[in-house]
Design a binder for these strands. Structure first.
Lengths: 249, 249
DNA sequence: ACCGGCCTTCCGCTGAGCGGAAAGGAGACC
DNA sequence: GGTCTCCTTTCCGCTCAGCGGAAGGCCGGT
């Protein structure tokens, strides 16, 4: 078959699919992409991407910023309309501010999304620890505070899947299933989880569950440079917030 | 020409364009749409929309929620990657919290976008006034606090265009160009703007400019049920915040 | 029973889309 | 200045993905 002639190397593909592939090329760590980078990441030939991207820029879905492409204003607008745990976020917002005000640490609100943690909200402190997460991003469960809380209360099936593949992120990441399993028991017993430089060097976290009915619906956490003797104070602040959020659900 | 036969009623149209038309059917006031509503608002025939929407749902750009369609998680993720005044928002975030903490009112951060106001951030109070705006939405300039501030410092050309079409929104909306012009002079002189039920009944606002270099880059505001004698206190709180934000730019 | 509104499936026509080929930059290295 | 590499952009002829009118199914109202 000498070159598949004319068009579509992959029959069955749709334009909408290609458009989403182009948009999907952007992520947390790739907010600016050149044309060829998009092509590579989307698995499409450069000329095709060139045309699509041109179209998308014309419609405001993407924007050109000096050399490279970035996600456009239009898509920001539209994306904000998505009902992603809207009630939870709205209920939580004031309490997260309270926690921030009293601790001045970075504050997180997250839910479980499959086998990962989805960050819904992040309040970054004025002079806070370097933190990887931001609203909209996902991180693994086994090395984040919110992750441990959500994992401790997740269905058995999720837990065993996650425990089966504990990727090392820093030298302090817990990668032995037995150790993590014992930590999770403790999380259930004591009502909070901690991490110590397991995701990012120089960052520790404390997290507590937010309950809706009997279920754990979300987790709130703070990130600080070190736990030391602040632990008790942070747990209390978070529990007050979690309680308040739960009441409003 | 008896029915235009076969395909595309409108030649020259592209699929990417149609996709954006479909996504553009959603807005602030239309977060849930039925298939036929999308078709109407996008100006496309229902079968075409049916196919596109199906595709988009498969890719997570839209989601089906019982009967109707809503914007999907995937688009939320991607939209959050847009560099929409990122540095401004990050610089402002902690100061907005401070204002919220001290006033317990709804706090806004906005910039001018053409002849309208674009809301970048909204901190909604626990028990706050009904407010129309939310992050991502745009409102007219002449009847919002942030709008008046930004209009007072906008290029002459923008100002005259806006003054030329003052739409009435509530019985208290200022629709006489002369009156508004005098208010704007005062805004420049005194350093803050106010509105009294000009956009929403039962909501008043106070706003101050945020400067970057010599330019006014943004505006911060609070929304309260009534101004009364709080005005001075609110202006001060906002000015402190605006000063802090400006310092970080 | 009938009507009006939705959603959905069908299907034949066709031009929008495709992407290899090749031409135009912009650097980097020798 | 020449050559190499990598990226962007234009060209263009071949099709198949997309189109949307027509028609069928479903519900709720009258």
């Amino acid at each position: 078959m000498p070159a598949m002639a004319g068009n579509t190397g992959t029959p069955g593909a749709t334009v909408a699919g290609r458009v989403m592939a182009v948009l999907g090329a952007f992520d947390e760590h790739h907010r600016r992409l050149t044309l060829s980078a998009i092509a590579r990441r989307a698995g499409l030939p450069p000329p095709t991407v060139h045309r699509l991207v041109g179209e998308l820029v014309r419609h405001g879905a993407l924007a050109r910023e000096d050399g490279a492409y970035v996600v456009g204003r239009r898509l920001w607008d539209i994306g904000l309309l998505a009902p992603v745990q809207t009630t939870l976020r709205e209920a939580a917002s004031p309490f997260l501010h309270d926690v921030y005000a009293t601790t001045l640490a970075t504050v997180h609100l997250a839910v479980r999304d499959g086998d990962e943690v989805l960050y819904l909200e992040r309040l970054a402190g004025r002079a806070s620890v370097p933190v990887v997460s931001s609203a909209g991003s996902t991180l693994p469960m086994h090395c984040t505070g919110v992750g441990k809380v959500l994992l401790a209360h997740a269905p058995e099936e999720v837990r065993s899947r996650v425990l089966g593949s504990l990727r090392r992120v820093t030298p302090y990441t817990v990668t032995r299933p037995g150790v993590l399993l014992r930590q999770l028991e403790r999380v259930r017993r004591e009502g909070y989880a901690t991490t110590v430089e397991e995701m990012t060097l120089g960052a520790c976290s404390v997290a507590v569950p937010v309950r809706r009915g009997g279920e754990v619906a979300a987790a709130v956490a703070v990130v600080v440079p070190t736990l030391k003797r602040d632990r008790g104070r942070l747990v209390t602040a978070l529990q007050v917030a979690a309680q308040g959020i739960a009441r409003r659900l």
